[in-house]
Write a protein that binds this DNA or RNA. Structure first.
Lengths: 347, 347
DNA sequence: TTGAAAGCGATACCAT
DNA sequence: ATGGTATCGCTTTCAA
């Protein structure tokens, strides 16, 4: 009773060959009812189940998928992406091999030179960070499908699912302008050493909307407030906004996690949204709803699921309808934005 | 160039045996410098790396850990536990095989009868849900270390790391009572079909503190408000609180995710904390800090890490200092609680 | 319907 | 220091 029973122990006990035991589990329909029943009984008695290891070996597949991410899985976006991928892959027998914090120069270097995923995974997902040409080349040496989620264009992906960060933030900004705001501030954190593509794209969207609008609205004032990354980025943003000579009549936020603390903390300084200013976020992350934050909605869970479905198709050499997809975030109007009347604008 | 190079291709190309190639990767120090260098060069040229599959087969280990959880990984607690376990196991070469939503009767049944983890993982983690005797027995058939995180006592675990939910909530409640509150309401959601041990334990803690205090404070009034589970449990709690004949002077919350929306939404109904009532949460989850919520702090990331360290030791047959650990949550005083003066209490 | 045997990738023992 | 070989658990032809 010491050692766990193996396939041959079961075969012997059931008086059949290991081939038959194998078949009982992999293709039960081609085994006679009586044999199958007997084998299953014995197997159960011995706590025997087919191991995936043998199958992996034989098939050459690992039933593992690598997920590379900037920062930690604990962020809202990353968790959702993970859960979305898992929602598709789990039932197909795949595990997700997680590689977090591919963000510092060292961790990147280490990852891409060691390339621990080489010959160890069946597919690679890259979430939310840009990849450099040389790294892309390294990654392609894995010779498995590589699917990007919220990544900038790059030749190394077989498929990408991205939201239109730039267009989305442009529309968010246009919304504020259309509401009559004329002194808009964009708060964002500095990008990570490894370029987080979303951060840059969103800023570009804001700038584009503003420069464009300025052609017809000359008195439009706008400004980008960039604060250091890290735990306290929201507090830094708060300080930066309060330090402005005239308090803005609208704040456009890189993400909800910045917008939500801002809304709450600005109250303590007498600035109430939407009474005193409008504010819009990006993501529609937890509590945005509770707080009534107007924001651009995106669904990273679904994006992860889409990525996984594409990877699976690529694995089977099936054609992809749309290998490179750009998803549009949608404006969710809630209660932190309000139209300015002419008097206020003039004031 | 079609097929990927295997270990024997590399061996042949380098003019050595496969044993040598294997040694170059597993114990490079016992291979001569010149051979090692040559093999590595060839390996790199062929994009060859040692596969974990072969190693698994040989060693009998799977380098996979199962993580069973109630509900979804996207909840704060579950994500933190996952990240904590991964922080220890990742570098040791383990992947986490996630089994979410072991909560409905059917999904439980399916999981425990199929027992997909049998012979497929090296260790099992159970996060935050109670297990029945029969299920425990099933689980033990895996014959691998089973470590529980926030689980009620049960014979089936080789180790458990739990927070003292009951004691923690008792102290939270005592805090409110000591502050002078005399009309306390406890808001919580109904437990899942699969018993979420924390929910029950916390309620017990509240009830115990109240019944105990009532011995010396006869005019203490308290009540448990139980609302349906699901997405809108916070809204249900809000409605339940507002439906009380006299608005409570203190609210004790099962978790921050209930307390935070409550604090925010009660404002719209003219009830401000701590001016009109005190409120205390449990967890110290995201935004508790931002909102200044007084709460009981726990650290599920660290608990996951502890669980993983214990599992690793068990795997190596090392003794555990403290196999069954009870962690105390700590009271974090912020700004949603306030002492009532005698006048107020009398009113 | 079932069995025998080869082979997948890596390791470790035993030789050399 | 290196090579040959058995072995791990399973799948899959090919035969019976």
């Amino acid at each position: 009773m010491e050692k766990r029973a193996g396939i041959r122990d079961v075969a012997k006990a059931a008086g059949v060959s290991i081939s038959t035991v194998s078949r009982v589990f992999s293709r039960p329909e081609i085994v006679s009812d009586s044999t199958r029943k007997r084998v299953l009984e014995i197997a159960d008695k011995y706590d025997f189940k087919i191991t995936r290891t043998g199958t992996m070996l034989k098939s050459g597949q690992t039933f593992r998928a690598a997920l590379l991410m900037n920062e930690s899985i604990t962020s809202w976006f990353n968790t959702q992406v993970f859960a979305g991928i898992d929602s598709i892959l789990h039932d197909k027998g795949y595990d997700i091999s997680l590689f977090q914090h591919i963000d510092s120069a060292e961790s990147r270097e280490r990852f891409f030179t060691n390339l621990p995923v080489l010959r160890n995974v069946d597919m690679v997902f890259v979430a939310s960070f840009a990849i450099e040409a040389e790294e892309a080349e390294q990654l392609q040496r894995t010779r498995v499908p590589i699917v990007g989620i919220n990544v900038p264009e790059s030749s190394c992906f077989d498929s990408t699912i991205s939201i239109d960060d730039e267009g989305g933030m442009e529309r968010a900004t246009q919304h504020l302008i259309r509401l009559g705001h004329r002194n808009i501030v964009y708060t964002c954190s500095q990008p990570a050493p490894t370029i987080d593509s979303s951060i840059d794209a969103r800023e570009r969207g804001f700038v584009r909307a503003c420069t464009q609008a300025q052609l017809t609205i000359p008195d439009l004032r706008w400004k980008v407030l960039k604060v250091p990354r890290g735990q306290q980025f929201a507090d830094f943003a708060l300080a930066a906004v309060l330090a402005e000579e005239t308090f803005p009549d609208a704040i456009c936020c890189q993400m909800d996690m910045m917008a939500l603390p801002l809304v709450l903390k600005l109250q303590h300084f007498g600035h109430h949204a939407p009474r005193d200013y409008s504010i819009i976020g990006f993501d529609d992350s937890p509590y945005a709803d509770t707080l009534g934050l107007t924001t651009m909605h995106q669904d990273p869970f679904e994006m992860g699921a889409m990525a996984a479905r594409n990877a699976l198709k690529l694995l089977n050499n099936e054609p992809l309808n749309e290998p490179f997809q750009l998803v549009e975030p949608s404006l969710i109007l809630r209660s932190t934005d309000e139209r300015r009347n002419v008097a206020q604008i003039a004031a």
